[in-house]
Amino acid sequence: MSVFSHKPHHHDHDAEHFVEQVVRASEERGLRLTPLRREVLELVATSEKPAKAYDLLDRLRERHGNAAPPTVYRALDFLLTQGFIHKLESINAYVHCPHPAQSHQVPFLICDKCDSAVEVCDGRVAELIAAQADALGFTPQDQTLEVHGVCKGCRER
């Protein structure tokens, strides 16, 4: 049974609390959250919408004029591998994970008008996909489920 609630998580939150959770999870796992990795994490966490790598690079260059694309991508790869952030493949952007201490696969609802992303933390979805894969003798290695549409806020405008 999943530890996740059946409530979606909008990607607006207390960034400072989120970063503290990641710092704790990194310490518990014996990971090295370098100053640059932490800075990229903070940029993703404080972004009002899913963050694109080159937008992150531009923001890093405001602080560190010599930041290069590989620097950002290495930090993003580390954060992705550890499950601290998610990549939205269809829009090639990154969002923080509301459950950075837990490994999980979740679907996202993405608004095509405002680019908001909602993480659907409902373990039943992952369990259903896993059961279907098992029934077909399929071994999943990665999962990205993204549903595009229009959010309530944009519909009401």
Rank of each mutant, 00 (worst) to 15 (best):
F4L: 15
F4R: 10
S5V: 12
H6P: 06
H10K: 07
D12R: 15
D12E: 13
D12Q: 14
H13W: 12
D14I: 02
D14R: 08
A15D: 01
A15T: 02
E16K: 15
E28S: 12
R29S: 08
R29H: 03
G30R: 06
G30I: 04
R32V: 06
L33T: 07
L33R: 03
T34M: 08
T34C: 04
L36M: 13
R37Y: 12
E39W: 11
L41N: 01
L41K: 00
E42G: 02
S47V: 06
E48N: 02
K49P: 00
K49D: 03
P50Y: 04
A51V: 01
K52T: 02
K52I: 01
A53M: 03
Y54I: 08
D55W: 02
L56F: 05
L57V: 06
D58G: 09
R59P: 05
R63V: 11
N66I: 09
N66C: 10
T71S: 09
R74I: 09
A75R: 05
A75H: 03
A75Q: 03
D77S: 13
Q82A: 10
Q82I: 00
G83K: 07
G83C: 12
G83A: 13
H86P: 05
H86A: 15
K87R: 14
L88M: 13
E89Y: 13
S90Y: 13
I91M: 12
Y94Q: 00
V95L: 03
P98D: 04
P98E: 11
P98K: 07
P98Q: 09
P98L: 01
H99P: 00
P100L: 06
S103F: 12
H104M: 05
Q105W: 10
V106G: 04
F108A: 00
L109W: 10
L109F: 15
L109H: 13
I110W: 01
C111S: 09
D112T: 14
E119F: 01
C121P: 15
E127L: 03
A131Y: 00
Q132I: 04
L136D: 12
G137A: 06
G137K: 12
F138V: 13
T139L: 15
P140C: 10
Q141Y: 14
D142W: 12
D142Q: 12
T144W: 03
T144H: 14
T144Y: 14
L145Y: 13
H148I: 15
H148Y: 15
C151I: 07
C151T: 12
C151M: 10
C151G: 13
R155F: 05
E156L: 15
R157G: 11
